[in-house]
Amino acid sequence: MKKWMNRISTLFLFGFSVIILFMSLKLKVGSLNNPEAGFAPFLASLLLLFLSAVILIKDFLSFAEADQKVPFITWKNLMKPINLMGALIGYGLLFTTLGYVTSTFLLMLAMFIIYESKKWMHKIITACIIAGISFLIFDVWLRVPLPKGIFDFSSFIKTWW
């Protein structure tokens, strides 16, 4: 699996460098005595293109026997990071709509569940407390304008405080 992950990550860098290379040319590279906006990105993308090509070639030529001896990652281990990323993407999507307090409560609850799924009541109360206290710290004290959303719990917290 590591071999494939390696190839995918290196292909990502390769593709990225190709895109930047063409965009730099479009920006105009200029000349050595008058370098323009695309000059430095062109050089950096050329270097990245070369290096990622070398890594890819090395990877295809090697049999990577050593990699197979060590278990790289299992689906069981990968589940928690994937779930956390899913929760964070959901948080990003709902952040302005639901508001800071509600979306943070849901994110906290999701993260507690991701780690272990016992003691539900305990988790709900802890998530509530963290969402409320963090709102007080950042919105009320540090004056970070956090989104209120459709469930405006923020005014309730402020009134209660």
């Binding site: 860098l13 990225f16 950096a44 990245l48 890594i55």
Partner: peptide, 12 residues
Amino acid sequence: IKAISMGAFGLI
């Protein structure tokens, strides 16, 4: 070689 690649990626 991967470290240098990351340097180039950061520069871009």
